[in-house]
């Protein structure tokens, strides 16, 4: 049983790394609508996998990132370079949260996670980002 859990955890870490690398690649340039759709897909799939293995840190971040990508897709004139930077920061944090050894349980990420989630929430709910910047 422990062996099976280890195999699932390793598969999850590998999948997370692959999806995050693809997401990062989409941000080499300011993403257009098609790239935002792909970003949403990657983050949403990552959220599903994180939820399935109960990786709470990554689950929260990937869900917020998926919603952020969808919001950016709907908003005219987005994303701005500042949005892209926030997505890149989110991906970096998710890479830490998906660490093969203890990323899912790392309590020291909590402050950064809350900060990142707060930034995303601030931008999507108030719509303040990108206006007058």
């Amino acid at each position: 049983m422990q062996e099976q859990e280890q195999a699932i955890r390793s598969a999850f870490a590998a999948e997370a790394r692959e999806r995050l690398a693809k997401a990062r690649g989409e941000l080499d340039a300011i993403p257009g609508n098609a790239a935002l759709d792909r970003l949403h897909q990657e983050f949403d799939s990552l959220h599903g996998a994180a939820r399935a293995v109960n990786c709470r840190n990554l689950e929260r971040l990937s869900r917020a990132a998926a919603e952020f990508a969808r919001w950016l897709r709907r908003e005219p004139g987005r994303p701005t370079p500042a949005h892209v930077e926030l997505l890149q920061q989110g991906i970096t944090l998710m890479e830490h949260a998906a660490g093969v050894r203890d990323g899912c349980e790392r309590e020291d990420l909590e402050a950064d996670i809350l900060h990142c989630l707060g930034m995303i929430r601030d931008k999507t709910e108030r719509g303040t980002f990108g206006r007058g910047e």
Partner: peptide, 12 residues
């Protein structure tokens, strides 16, 4: 399923 993790969990 495009998620290797989900396929593995399904089999488990």
């Amino acid at each position: 399923d495009d998620s290797a993790t989900s396929r593995l969990l399904f089999k488990a």
